[in-house]
Design a binder for these strands. Structure first.
Lengths: 192, 192, 192, 192
DNA sequence: GATTAATCGAGACGGTACGTCAAGTCTTGAT
DNA sequence: ATCAAGACTTGACGTACCGTCTCGATTAATC
């Protein structure tokens, strides 16, 4: 059974999400305004609220939507190279969505439901990729069988984010090298 | 030179900071309101703004204040034990300030100046502690001379925070054990 | 020349007008909504706007339509009796249209064009009736030749409406008697 | 006991009421906007809503406030002259408040409570004046003892308003003369 | 019987005003 | 100079209504 009435204009969805991403990139989440989004996207506020119940929900969907154009998983045959390559792609892509997500985490504290959804769609992708790379390394014998794949896979993203949160410095090539040298040295991770 | 007029009531400072911490714990940073703080603390809004220029600085100071009741640095003679012991104390102390800081971290994205200050006072203490522990381990020969102390010191806090941010799970005893086993095994971290 | 396409459903006209009258009676003109009318009449908003260019014209036509079931002009041979009889019929008919018109009168202040039309169709009928009655009285010699027919004819409706607007009391039998006794006493109004 | 806190600025009250009256005079009640009032009066919207719960209440008070500068009751010794003089003063004063009240009556239909208040303060003044004039005329013997003072006193305002509502013509000198000639002729009202 | 053209209900759309709420400032009288 | 109380400006919030505009589905009259 087809839906009744005039169908929603899908262009408006995209225009609104794009406008939200843009404006977050320009001024951050707190400076973001529904009126600004409406104006930038040439969409009425009513149309926005017909789709999203509030600002936060809109922004989360915006970030999710723009996170889908991301880097493919490399497969070089060596864990160190996989990780370096993937991180380098991230640095180059340094899309607005990452900083948007970070700018969002405070607001998400007030809505655990939405926070979970946001984590599931945004962060899970990274974890999946890293875990696959680490798992392959274990299979290849690069890492010992008892390796805690989850923990090792999280090293790179965790340290990268921690650094940006504690020192304010974002991920760059030099840091990638330090990471790789310390935790994924040319020979092996924790073997003599 | 003594200031003229009626001196400030020091009780108000503490009442306000305590109220802020409480309210952040209840509803998160975005739901925090200066009026709510004033009411909860039985303090006038004017008194708040006489002490702190805006909401963010008040909250930062609140978190700082409640972070001073923290764990001392252990010195067991073995890195693994130092780290485990320190983390366990953190878990037991699980004060509201930790989640308050996490809930706050993004609001800081919009104010780099304040973010820096917040980092310096709140995060530095952790980093200093962990780095000292790792440095001692290097001196003892537990870790090889070329070890990137910063990175190794950040492993525990970075992974702990990453986990809480991505999966929503907070630091607990089981996770501490996993951390220790993977990165600081009973024998050594990385053997030359 | 027959119009092409599907013909308009005449039932919708009536349903819409009836719904408008009902809703005005329930909440007054300002609380009246096109969406409410549409829902109450089980008619789409588009169908409404296909028939009337805006809310005001719809309402005016609604009032007009329901004003057509009104009293015939009496002709008893005596002005007092004519007026009393006509007013009594009005009281008994006390249709929703009267109060609807009163509730509407101010909205018309903003649209002189429509106000004129509304006056012509709604009010003129009353005036015509009363003037005819007064004119006959003058011809019969009941009133002197120089009588200002307009003014005398307006006494009853003007005082009735003024009373309802100033004191909130509507026309009733007692008031009709007072009116008749004061201005159209059993003998004559103004004797030369 | 004096009220606590900063007292309300009485200038804001007056500025808001004045702005409301002005704007009603310029565009009528439907075109009136709280934002416009706020802007015109250089007052914040919040300050408006602190004083009045909604637009209608504000406007009613505005009209009431500006209705207090009105004509004094004449006392010429003859009813006809009293009435003519009072009506002429009204014509000259033709303040915005009268048309504002008329423009308001529709909106008042939705709030009977407020409508009553509005009637009591705005219309009662006129009635009191007219009734006093008529009562004096009865005492002087100008009108017979059994005269229905209420009704006779209402003739002038009722016919004036009825005329403006039905024909759109406002009270003017010519109409005053017609009124006086018909109902209050130089000699007597209903005497031979 | 197929086509055409205007209707129908449902509901999305832009625009605009509403009334609420929070941040940060200012003004009382009192301490 | 401080205090509590509370008014003040600014500006965003989320809601509601108006009048317009698509949709797919009906419904006659025409071909």
């Amino acid at each position: 059974m087809v839906p009744l009435g005039r169908p929603r204009d899908p262009n408006l969805d995209e225009a609104a999400l794009r406008a939200a991403i843009e404006l977050i990139g320009e001024g951050g989440y707190p400076a973001l305004t529904m009126d600004h989004i409406a104006e930038r996207a040439s969409v009425s506020k009513a149309a926005l609220y017909r789709r999203w119940p509030n600002k936060l929900t809109l922004v989360v969907e915006a970030i999710e939507a723009f996170a889908h154009n991301q880097a493919p998983m490399p497969d070089t045959g060596r864990l160190r190279d996989d990780i370096v390559q993937f991180l380098r792609t991230m640095v180059r892509n340094r899309a607005a969505d990452v900083q948007a997500y970070e700018a969002l985490s405070a607001a998400l504290a007030g809505d655990p439901e939405l926070a979970k959804q946001c984590r599931d769609t945004l962060v899970a992708r990274f974890s999946v990729t890293f875990r696959a790379m680490v798992a392959r390394a274990v299979e290849r014998g690069e890492l010992p069988p008892g390796t805690d794949i989850e923990l090792v896979a999280d090293i790179a993203p965790a340290l990268a984010r921690y650094r940006s949160q504690t020192t304010g410095q974002h991920l760059d090539e030099a840091f990638i090298d330090r990471l790789a040298d310390q935790f994924f040295p040319p020979v092996a991770v924790t073997r003599a």
